[in-house]
Amino acid sequence: MSHATLEDTYNFAKKFSQYKDFYIKHNNLIFSKLGLGTFVKEPYKEENYVFHYIEAVKEAIRQGINVIDTASNYRYGQSEKEIGEALAELIAEGEVKREELIIASKGGFIELEYPFPENPYTWIAENIIEAGLATKDDIELDQHCITPDYLEASCRKSLKNLGVDSLDIYYLHNPEMQLLRLGHKAFYKQIEKVFERFEKLADLGLIQSYGVAVWNGFTSENSSELISLEKLVECAIKVGGMGHRFKYIQLPFNMGKTTAYTAETQKVDGVACSVINAAHNLGIGVISSSSLLQMNLFKKSFSAETGVVLDNSMTLKNDIQLALQFVRSTPGIVTSLFGSKVPVNIRENCEISKVRAVPRTKYDLLYRL
């Protein structure tokens, strides 16, 4: 096997049987409730290349995390390559099997290369337009492209960078960037073409499932920027039938950005609901990102009342752990991603595995504090 399996992900979870409800079954796989993300802001800055994620990835897996998330454009492919190095070393040493891990990447942003090309416009012309992957008009703001040919090439490049034969989840990355330019009708026609190609990639075994990763796309108050999850599922059914492989969405969720849970921005069968409820009703798994809001949650300490609701055992020692306990406990979320390149911080974050998730009735109290 070259992808995650139920048996192997279950065996991985059993290694950490002392953990308290830290694993969940979804789509015939066992997910850790925390996943490691590898996004870094402003990847063109040189300082983002003087560190690496290799030891962070190793530590996350050793601490019981089996969900690793990245994207082709994160640090222009460096994040994918470093994940690949870490996996190769752990697998060679017999510490983990590929089939125990759920590996996800994304395509849509133009990844360029590292070192950064002297003229990115020339690079785009030579590597995308002249290569026949897209036209100039297909590229939004010189940074985003969702033609099927470009996305397939990006997916294949991600596989090479990661050193794996298949991705467990492959996301269409921030497609809302194309929505204003295309308009809703043309946008969903383009989504059909993308999903049709993704279904073919799944038939080839290059991906096991696919999804859509957004920032505000599912929760925007501006209807011209809002993506309908129900329509996405309709697109998937149209090109892939009821056995389509559109299985996941990814969106930000944290203590400062809760609209995915609280705001009725979606409709299913004409009934308004939150995107998390919509996903549940449509059979789509929700992966949350930006669990720590890029550390912007911690400009002041959380209240004592919040701490008691999230952890009345007083096991957790800091606000970062409480913030992760919050997202981990959110009903309807399969896995919550956090980013860290420091192994000791990953160990501290995984301390939340020693306490149980907050029950739904108690969790909802947090929105009244």
Rank of each mutant, 00 (worst) to 15 (best):
K58L: 07
Q294K: 12
K81N: 12
E230F: 07
I346E: 04
G107F: 06
Q78I: 10
C273Q: 06
S301V: 09
V67C: 14
V309P: 02
D203K: 15
E199H: 13
S166E: 04
S154M: 06
T219E: 05
L251N: 11
N281F: 00
I287H: 02
S353C: 10
R328G: 02
D203E: 15
V355I: 15
Q208T: 15
E221R: 14
L162R: 04
E85M: 08
A4D: 07
N318M: 08
K136C: 05
A134V: 03
M314E: 14
N318K: 10
L204V: 00
E221Y: 10
A56F: 03
G283D: 13
R347T: 13
I30W: 03
M255N: 00
L6C: 05
D269S: 12
G256N: 13
K20W: 00
T70W: 06
L310H: 10
E230L: 06
H173F: 14
I83D: 02
N281V: 00
Y74N: 03
Y23G: 03
E46H: 13
I102A: 06
L172A: 06
K257R: 11
N11A: 15
F31P: 01
L366A: 11
S224H: 06
D21K: 10
L167I: 04
G283S: 11
V342L: 08
G332V: 09
S105V: 08
E89T: 14
D168S: 13
G307D: 02
H26G: 04
S228L: 05
Q63F: 06
R98N: 08
S301W: 01
L112P: 03
Y248L: 05
K45D: 12
S220H: 05
K185Q: 15
I128P: 03
Y114S: 05
